[in-house]
Amino acid sequence: MPPSAAVRVGSPFTGLGPVFMKELSDHLSSIRMLVLTLFVIVFGAFPVASSLQQLRTVVGADAYLFLRIFTIAPEQIALPFVQALNFVIPLMAIGLGFDSVNSEFNRRTLSRVLSQPIYRDALLLGKFLGGLVTLAVALVALWLIVFGAGLLLLGLPPRGVEVARALGFLVVAIAYGGVWLAVSMLFSVVFRSTATSALCALGLWLFFFILWPMIADAITLGFVPNEIRSVDQLLSLQELSLALQRLSPGTLFTEAVIGLLNPETRTLGPMLPSQMRGAIVGAPLPLDESLLMIWPQVTGLIASMIVLFAAAYVIFQRQEVRA
């Protein structure tokens, strides 16, 4: 190796703060952010409004009534709030990240910024964190709106455990947004054209939403033997199908959210008789056990976010700065 392999001196995080603050203020003051927030609120408000309407008519005692705002599928639009978010969060993350690096190339600001005392590490990480915090701000705002509306219209305060579960949901939603932010930033590093990068990120999003479930089914079908002789065989097929589905971050998000917001959920895979033994059907799981159940999903989301970011980082380090 040439002398470039030598150890470099100085913290890779020098200048991280200013980059982060600039990205954050750029995002928060941009018209794009305004449009995205409006989009998310409108998209979230409809399911919430209609599920609140429906919940107000519920008379029976439900220990987790408050959490139903998030999960219930209202009669009029048949779209639960969490499903709407599953759809909208990627769009928002892609909107925030698809031009983060290549626009600096195209505006010819990259070489000027990198000629300041700062490593590329700090630039990329600052941009990612700026986007993630922006996303978090929007989601927290949305979450508070839903919570406030619930308080006002249901006239019933949520219990502590409900708040804790709803907060967990918020964390999962932010992690999910982080995955798609990392995807769109990866494309923004790979492609010099912002349009190409946006198109690829949106393409991947549509692929996972529309095509992947079908492909996963088709692959599973290919493994079906002529006749299924035992429960084990059926089970392994189901598990294969699930494993394939879980390659889509949307599935991980949905499963984690179901586990958190539907305390009755006992397993995210096929239900085994052994798991049913001694269980009272429909009885809620304590919070810690729900958390334990969704832990693989949450780690999966965070791990894929880190892997995607690392890929973007490696490619960015090797790129030439000249346009």
């Binding site: 470039s4 030598a6 150890v7 470099r8 001196v9 070489s111 000629s115 300041q116 005392p117 700062i118």
Partner: peptide, 13 residues
């Protein structure tokens, strides 16, 4: 190569 931050602190580009 080894101390880019020191160089870039003192050099305008």
């Amino acid at each position: 190569v080894r101390e880019p931050l020191e160089v870039k602190r003192r050099v305008g580009y």
